[in-house]
């Protein structure tokens, strides 16, 4: 699905890099522990997380991810948005919680890309 569709399913707001919202993504990974993302993520283009700090953006960069979805209405700081913009990573904020955000996207066809 397109990043824009994922945002819509989650009633989310795109916070930056709208120009990339039509990019296609097929797999996602949900975690609040960045070391787990680094250890287990493979080619998931989307990171769903409740953690909100600059290291989330850095982690996504290391994993070549295209989009980060912040759950529970978390709003990244201007500093984080700046970091993401420079790297072309789409940031989305959704009021949904982790479980329901992951569930919604999974039922809509996004896969986990791992075990």
């Amino acid at each position: 699905m397109k990043i824009s569709e994922a945002a819509k399913i989650l009633e989310g707001t795109i916070l930056c890099c709208e120009e990339f919202q039509d990019k296609e993504v097929t797999a996602a990974c949900g975690s609040d522990m960045m070391s787990d993302v680094l250890a287990y993520a493979k080619d998931q283009a989307v990171l769903i997380t409740g953690l909100c700090n600059p290291q989330v953006i850095r982690t996504a960069v290391m994993m070549d991810m295209l989009c980060i979805i912040f759950v529970r209405g978390k709003k990244p700081t201007d500093e984080m948005i700046e970091l993401a913009k420079e790297r072309g990573i789409v940031l989305v904020s959704t009021p949904r919680r982790m479980f329901s955000a992951c569930g919604k996207l999974y039922s809509a066809g996004l896969v986990s890309g791992g075990y």
């Binding site: 522990m33 960045m34 070391s35």
Partner: peptide, 15 residues
């Protein structure tokens, strides 16, 4: 609270 400190850093480096 930053998402690190899970004790997976050195194992990840080895991996």
């Amino acid at each position: 609270a930053l998402g690190f400190g899970a004790g997976m850093g050195l194992p990840n480096m080895k991996k």
